[in-house]
Amino acid sequence: MSDLFAVVMLSGIYSLISASLFLDLDAVDVAFTEASVGAGISTLLMLASLKLVSRYQKKTRYKPILAFFVVVTTGAMLIYGTLDMPHFGTADAPVHTHVAPRYLNESMGEIGVPNVVTSVLASYRGYDTLGETLVIFTAGIGVMALLMVSKQTKQESKKLIPADMQQQIILRIVAKMMIPLILMFALYVQFHGDYGPGGGFQAGVIFAAGIILYTMLFGLSTSQEVFKATTIELFTAAGVLLYGGVGVVCMLLGGNFLDYDFLKHDPVHGQHLGILLVELGVGITVASVMMIIFFKFTWRTVKHKYKK
């Protein structure tokens, strides 16, 4: 297929189907994330960058023999590896008998959050999640550094950017109705993550998606009046600092890093507070990084359009 637009759309559909499969495999949080990330944000980013590169792939003859060889070797290794695996769906596999039972049996007493995924994510393995937030932050830094737009371009093009979708009345009206709801849904996902699927990451992505929708319909300069680029940059860092700060506070109160038990007198309450705060940190960083990445791509488009 040489039309990259179709390629990107198909990969988005693939992600959506994956999400439903994850749901079938009981991984509700993962399905949620895959739907919002794989089918949502990542498709969006790919489309945004397609706007900057050529949409059609050049027809080239390539020699796939070496690649084929590598792939077949890898495949053989994988299939070989599967042969001694515990069968799919069996309950007595080592995976289900060694570490996981504690999460399922004790987490209610130790952490008091019904969604075990949240309690493992934010507390038992909270440090991994700090790392994950940092990964997002790193990507944000990378995109900011790579797609920098000088102040001059910004000022020059400020008056020039028309809202591309001026004529799309239906889209604008529907979006106006939906965007507040999307943002509210994001907040619901953020603070309801303890009880149902969801949490800081998904909420951040949904929040960013709402803002991105607004940006697409009403123009970059309109949305940047509210969400100033410099402020969002600060927010990307603030989320990580909030997460790490909670950890440091735990340390100052006498516990280990990220040991929320020490946040309050009652360990379960402490855990609750800790999880709430760190999820907020994740949400802030993710939302602002996603927004800033999209803004940077859009600025590039603007720059190309009006510089020539």
Binding site: Q168, I170, V174, L181
Partner: peptide
């Protein structure tokens, strides 16, 4: 409600 809103709008946008 949302799917009715969103899918009709999407169809409209695509057609346009």
């Amino acid at each position: 409600l949302f799917s009715l809103l969103a899918s009709t709008t999407a169809s409209h946008a695509i057609a346009k």
